[in-house]
């Protein structure tokens, strides 16, 4: 009996370790649940819509750390995706160090110009980026749309975002109708925004 017990215990411990490893790998890898739902046209509600995120303060051109032209309420303030309910939102995760984010910034700015008169907006969320670097990016690319900061990475994780840029087009009801994991292009935005406006 004893002779059987020791190998059984060792096997059990080994199985537990393997199970833990598998769980760790699956839990840490980005979720693709949203992508599957969107692909099946079961438009899922945007996750963590009520999560409050700090607003990225806007600095004046050439200033270093002093707030000037940005909305005065932005410093020390936070905002959530839920505040944009009723609008078509292009939720864009970005970081100043990301080259495709720099490439798509002019397109997103043009999209903002197109969405704003129709009660829509591009909403940027910075991820793994220092606020001063993000502010430099906003200034350099003349970004006028609002930007929030995901300082914990939990908001990005809820969207299965591990790399930037990634964009989620959200309709007026707060449901995700299109996802772009990578740099967006005009064709994707045209199609996704039309879909969001029609739902």
């Amino acid at each position: 009996m004893r002779r059987r017990a020791t190998p059984s215990l060792v096997s059990l411990a080994g199985a537990c370790l393997v199970g833990l490893l598998v769980y760790g790998v699956t839990a840490q890898s980005p979720s693709r649940t949203l992508d599957e739902a969107v692909a099946q046209r079961r438009y899922p509600a945007a996750p963590q819509a009520r999560r409050s995120l700090p607003v990225l303060p806007v600095l004046s051109a050439g200033s270093r750390g002093t707030l000037a032209t940005g909305p005065p309420a932005s410093i020390g303030h936070s905002d959530s995706l839920a505040a944009y309910r009723g609008k078509v939102v292009v939720l864009n995760f970005w970081a100043s160090w990301c080259e495709p984010c720099q490439a798509e910034a002019p397109l997103l700015e043009r999209t903002q110009g197109r969405l704003e008169p129709h009660d829509g907006t591009v909403l940027g969320v910075t991820y793994l980026d220092a606020s001063t670097d993000s502010q430099g990016f906003v200034r350099e690319h003349h970004v006028t749309y609002p930007n929030l900061r995901d300082t914990t990475g939990e908001f990005a994780r809820a969207y299965g975002t591990d790399y930037v840029p990634e964009s989620f087009v959200i309709d007026r009801a707060g449901d995700i109708v299109a996802i772009s994991r990578g740099e967006v292009d005009q064709k994707f935005l045209n199609k996704a925004i039309a879909l969001a406006e029609s739902t």
């Binding site: 769980y23 839990a27 840490q28 793994l128 980026d129 995901d150 300082t151 914990t152 990475g153």
Partner: peptide, 15 residues
């Protein structure tokens, strides 16, 4: 600035 992902050591909670 960068979130907990900037720390080389794992945090002491959760998984």
């Amino acid at each position: 600035q960068y979130g907990p992902a900037v720390l080389a050591l794992p945090s002491a909670h959760g998984f």
